[in-house]
Lab assay of single mutants.
Amino acid sequence: EAHAAIDTFTKYLDIDEDFATVLVEEGFSTLEELAYVPMKELLEIEGLDEPTVEALRERAKNALATIAQ
């Protein structure tokens, strides 16, 4: 499951495998979680700032909209 989540994140969020791995290690496994989890939870991840989190959430929401079509 972790590998599938990493693949999904790299494909749809335009991030590298290392960043995707950090997200999975922090407990995220779906685009929905990244799109809708409280921003505070993402900001608790070391190295993430508000602009990065906002961009990540926007990419996740856009990916979900694209997949739904």
Rank of each mutant, 00 (worst) to 15 (best):
P51C: 08
A2L: 12
D49A: 04
V24E: 02
A55P: 01
M39K: 10
E46A: 13
T8C: 08
L56E: 00
L31P: 01
L23A: 00
D18A: 14
E41A: 12
V53K: 04
I67R: 06
L34E: 00
L31E: 00
A68S: 11
G27L: 02
E33G: 07
T10C: 08
L43A: 06
T52C: 07
A20R: 01
F19C: 07
T30V: 03
A4E: 08
T21R: 15
T52H: 06
E50D: 06
T52Y: 07
A65M: 10
I45L: 08
A60N: 01
D18N: 11
K61Y: 07
E54C: 14
E50G: 12
K61F: 08
V24C: 04
S29G: 07
E46Q: 11
E58I: 12
H3G: 10
E17W: 13
I6R: 09
T10R: 09
V53I: 12
L23F: 03
A20C: 02
A20L: 02
K61V: 08
D7Q: 14
A63F: 04
Q69K: 10
E1V: 12
E32Y: 12
E46T: 15
E54H: 11
E26A: 15
G47Y: 06
D16H: 08
E44H: 14
E25R: 15
G47V: 05
I67E: 05
P38A: 09
E17R: 15
A5H: 05
K40D: 10
G27R: 02
T52D: 06
L48Q: 02
V37D: 05
V53M: 09
G27S: 02
D16R: 06
A5Q: 06
L31S: 00
T66F: 14
E54N: 12
L34C: 02
I6W: 03
E41L: 14
P38V: 06
A35I: 13
E54I: 15
D16V: 04
R57G: 03
F9K: 00
E26I: 14
A35E: 02
E44M: 14
L31Q: 00
V22D: 03
S29P: 02
E32W: 15
N62Y: 11
T8M: 15
L48W: 06
Q69P: 07
I15L: 06
E58H: 09
I67M: 10
D7G: 11
P51A: 14
T21G: 09
A4V: 12
N62T: 13
E54F: 07
H3E: 10
I45K: 04
F9V: 00
Y12Q: 03
E1L: 10
H3Y: 10
V24N: 03
V22P: 00
V24D: 01
Q69G: 11
E1F: 07
R57E: 01
A2G: 11
L34K: 00
A55W: 14
D7V: 13
A20H: 01
Y36F: 12
R57A: 05
V37M: 11
A68M: 09
E25Y: 14
F9Q: 00
L64T: 02
E54R: 15
E26P: 01
A35M: 09
E33S: 13
A4Y: 10
E50S: 09
E33C: 10
G47W: 10
V53S: 07
E46G: 10
E46R: 13
V22H: 10
V22E: 04
A60P: 01
I45P: 02
E1S: 13
K11E: 05
L48H: 02
A60K: 01
D14G: 15
Y12M: 07
G47D: 05
A55M: 14
L56T: 00
K40Y: 11
E44W: 09
E46H: 12
R57M: 08
E32M: 09
D18K: 13
E54L: 11
T66E: 12
K61I: 12
L23I: 03
A2W: 15
K40P: 06
I6E: 02
Y12F: 09
D49Q: 05
I6D: 01
K11P: 00
V53N: 01
D16P: 10
K40F: 10
E32P: 03
Y36R: 09
E32Q: 10
S29M: 15
N62H: 12
D49K: 04
G27K: 02
D14R: 08
T66C: 09
A5M: 09
L56F: 03
E26T: 14
I15G: 01
L42S: 03
V22M: 15
P51H: 12
E58T: 13
G27F: 03
T8L: 15
G47M: 07
F28C: 02
A60G: 01
L48N: 02
E44D: 11
K61T: 06
V37H: 10
L43V: 06
P38Y: 06
T10P: 00
L34D: 01
T8H: 09
G27E: 01
L34P: 00
F9N: 00
L43W: 05
D14Y: 12
A4M: 11
E44S: 14
K11V: 05
A20K: 01
E58Q: 14
D16S: 14
F19L: 14
Q69Y: 03
I67F: 06
I15A: 02
T52P: 01
I45R: 05
I45A: 03
D16C: 06
A65P: 03
D14T: 06
F19D: 03
D7S: 11
R59K: 12
E25M: 15
G47R: 07
L23D: 00
G27V: 02
A60L: 05
E1M: 11
T10Q: 09
H3M: 14
E1R: 06
L43N: 04
A4S: 12
A65R: 09
T8A: 10
K11I: 05
D16F: 04
L31W: 02
A35D: 01
I15W: 01
L42N: 03
M39H: 07
V22T: 10
V37A: 15
R57P: 03
E33Y: 08
Y36T: 13
E32F: 11
V22I: 13
I6Q: 04
F19R: 04
T30R: 08
V22F: 15
E26S: 15
E44L: 14
I6S: 03
L56N: 00
F19V: 10
E25I: 13
V22S: 08
Q69W: 02
M39R: 09
T52A: 11
V24W: 15
A68K: 11
A63V: 08
D16W: 04
E54M: 12
T66D: 08
I15N: 00
A60W: 03
I67V: 07
D49H: 05
P51E: 13
A5P: 06
K11Q: 08
D49R: 04
L23G: 00
K61S: 06
K40W: 13
G47L: 05
Q69M: 06
F19G: 02
Y36C: 07
Y12A: 05
Y12L: 07
A5L: 10
H3S: 12
A5R: 07
T30M: 05
R59T: 05
L13S: 00
K61C: 05
H3K: 15
I67L: 11
L48A: 04
L43H: 05
V37L: 11
I45S: 03
T52F: 13
I67Q: 07
E41G: 08
F28I: 08
L64A: 03
I6K: 06
R59Y: 04
A5Y: 07
L56P: 00
E25L: 15
L48P: 03
E17D: 07
A5D: 03
A55L: 14
M39Y: 07
V37Q: 09
Q69A: 14
